[in-house]
Simulated scan of single mutants.
Amino acid sequence: MTFNDTLTFSQSSAVLDAPEGLPEAVFWDMDGTLINSEVYWAAAERHVIELHGGTFSDEVPLRARGQSTPRLLQIVQEYIPAHVDPDTLRSEIIGYVIDREREKPCWATGAVELLDVLSQAGIPNVIVSASPRAMVDNMARQAPQGAFVGYVCGEDGLPAKPDPAPYLRAAEIVGADPVNCLVFEDSPVGLQSGGASGATVVAITGFTPEGVVFDGPQVTNIKDYVGLSLDDLANFMELGSLEK
């Protein structure tokens, strides 16, 4: 999905002052990257499993992290003794998380400030998530006005991460070569997806639970977005170009 976006005079001026080597666009995974929603997902998984007479395990969020919605439902079903219609599970889990996100968006630390920096520099942003459309659309519309020019979601009919298709689609939305784009991700499958598209990938570790290992292809790991500048993004892109 794309949104209308207008480059203002102040943004045009910022582009003239920007350092060389900046990404043509920045692509953000959503859960655990753009927003700290993993706690909401874990709570939803526990709620639904126990609602249907199952026993929740701490391994559920670890297994479900970064997975597509169909795969998430399969994992949750394993912890419920009787079969539950997938549409019912989907509705219960997604409804729970959306309600929490509407109450409190839970933006990742420094994310909104970085989005503002990118907007002022005229660099487009796209959300690339495996989550359902209703969830991604909700967060895109809660973001600062003009922050995102569009999004890719789990209901777009594309192969799921770690396939590069979601990030290739994001590049199509902005009309950019993925090689010249930057990806923020927080899961192994997401990092693989972004790297396979040809983009430069940075791993966000601030919300990563123990047991999740990042073994590539990111150029660096960062906890959050606090203090990130355009110079930092240019440095990320330079690191990426050295590895390609």
Rank of each mutant, 00 (worst) to 15 (best):
S193C: 04
V201S: 03
T69D: 07
A171S: 13
N4C: 01
F184S: 02
V212T: 14
T205E: 04
R100G: 06
S193T: 09
L51V: 00
I173N: 03
D29C: 01
Q11K: 00
V183M: 04
V117Q: 13
A44I: 03
T200V: 15
A130E: 11
Q192L: 11
R90T: 08
E172C: 06
S229K: 03
S229E: 06
A170V: 03
F207K: 00
K161L: 00
G21M: 01
T205D: 01
F207I: 00
A160S: 15
E113L: 07
L16W: 03
V202K: 08
D99L: 14
A18N: 06
W41R: 11
I93V: 14
V174T: 15
G194R: 12
L230N: 11
S129R: 12
I127H: 10
V226D: 09
D29K: 09
L22R: 03
G190H: 02
L7Q: 05
M1L: 11
S91V: 08
E59C: 07
I123S: 10
V15L: 10
A111S: 15
S10R: 07
V15I: 11
W28Y: 10
D17N: 11
L34E: 02
G54L: 05
L230A: 11
S241G: 02
L239N: 01
S241Q: 09
G110W: 13
L16G: 00
G66N: 07
G240Y: 03
P178G: 09
A42K: 06
I173S: 02
P132R: 10
N180Q: 15
K244G: 07
D186L: 01
G198D: 03
K244N: 03
P188Y: 06
A44Y: 03
V149C: 13
M30R: 01
D85A: 13
G227T: 05
D87G: 12
